[in-house]
Amino acid sequence: MAVPSAAVERQVALSSAIAAAATRSEVLTAMEDAAEAFGFAHVTLMAKPGDDDEYMSRLIIQTTLPEDFVRQFDRNRFLVACPVMPTLFDTMLPQAWTLGGLERDGIVPAPITRLMRRFSLFTTVVMPLHSFDGARFLLRFDGKRPSLRQSEINEFAVISLHAFEVFDRIRRTEEIAIPRPLSMRELEVVRWTAQGKTSVEIGRILSLSDHTINAHLTNAIKKLDCVNRTQLVAKAIRLGLIP
């Protein structure tokens, strides 16, 4: 069956952008464009959860998911409660589902589907990815669009594999600059953020204003060259700055 010209044009445009990427952030920017091209609102690249992992935020390398969604997901320990996550790496093929299908089949606990519905995560497609050095990752698109056709899932797989090949090559060869150290107070705030606490809650714990907490987080985000709190926590953990 011939591939529609629109899909071919999309593949060519996205593949060109991915091939031109020179940094990991540029690859991820290209994947944000890919998500939009497929009608999705969000893209996430995350590491495979280990047996002891309880927080999605600690696994995320990059995401455009709302911070409040990730915070509430972790606060309720949904990573452990979700029966779908452990099965995603049982295959090397992409998988897709709709929120309505999950609710109809009762596969996922209702509190998780309610949270997804609140943030309009009605359709999801994921691709398990395997690095040359044995590390395993997951790329996923989420948003509010109709269920994917098989041709779209196939196209997503091709784009994902290409993007990850470029990303992983850069990841393994790129010299990572040593970040400026965080102050003791900044580390303390980041630790509490990793536990799912809000700025207001951290302020109460440390007897500081939420404005001061936000200032510490902003400084930490700049020092570690991150774009948001989710990425800050993930990077601080990878660098061993917080447990």
Rank of each mutant, 00 (worst) to 15 (best):
P4W: 00
P4S: 00
S5E: 15
A6G: 01
A7S: 15
E9T: 02
A13I: 05
A13K: 15
L14S: 07
S15W: 07
I18P: 03
A19N: 13
S25D: 15
E26P: 02
V27M: 07
L28K: 05
L28E: 09
L28Y: 06
A30I: 12
M31P: 00
D33E: 13
A34G: 12
E36W: 07
G39H: 09
G39M: 06
V43P: 00
T44E: 07
T44Q: 04
A47I: 02
D52H: 09
E54P: 02
E54A: 12
Y55P: 04
Y55V: 11
S57G: 01
I61T: 15
T63I: 10
T63D: 10
P66T: 04
P66W: 03
P66V: 05
D68W: 09
D68N: 13
D68F: 06
V70Y: 06
Q72N: 13
N76C: 04
F78Y: 15
L79S: 10
V80D: 07
A81H: 08
A81S: 12
V84S: 10
D90N: 13
T91R: 10
P94L: 02
W97T: 04
W97E: 08
T98S: 14
T98Y: 07
L99R: 10
G100V: 01
G101C: 02
E103Q: 14
R104F: 09
D105M: 08
G106R: 02
G106Q: 01
I107K: 10
V108D: 05
P111L: 02
P111M: 06
R114C: 01
M116E: 15
R118W: 05
S120K: 15
T124P: 03
T124R: 12
V125M: 09
V125P: 13
V125Y: 11
V125A: 11
P128M: 05
L129D: 02
D133V: 03
A135D: 11
R136L: 02
L139P: 12
L139H: 14
R140C: 14
R140F: 12
D142G: 12
G143N: 09
K144E: 12
P146H: 10
S147D: 07
L148M: 13
S151Y: 14
I153H: 04
I153T: 13
V158A: 09
I159M: 03
I159P: 06
S160K: 06
L161N: 14
L161D: 10
H162P: 00
E165Q: 14
E165R: 14
D168V: 11
D168G: 09
D168Y: 10
R169V: 13
I170Y: 12
I170F: 10
R172Y: 00
A177C: 00
I178D: 08
R180G: 08
R180P: 00
M184E: 13
M184N: 07
M184C: 01
R185A: 14
R185S: 12
E186C: 05
R191H: 03
W192E: 15
Q195I: 01
K197R: 04
S199F: 00
I202E: 06
G203F: 01
L206G: 02
L208S: 04
S209Q: 07
D210M: 06
D210G: 01
H216V: 04
L217G: 03
N219W: 03
I221M: 08
K222S: 13
K222W: 02
L224D: 03
D225S: 15
N228H: 08
R229P: 00
Q231H: 10
L232W: 04
V233H: 06
A236M: 07
G240F: 05
L241R: 12
I242W: 01
P243W: 01
P243Q: 14
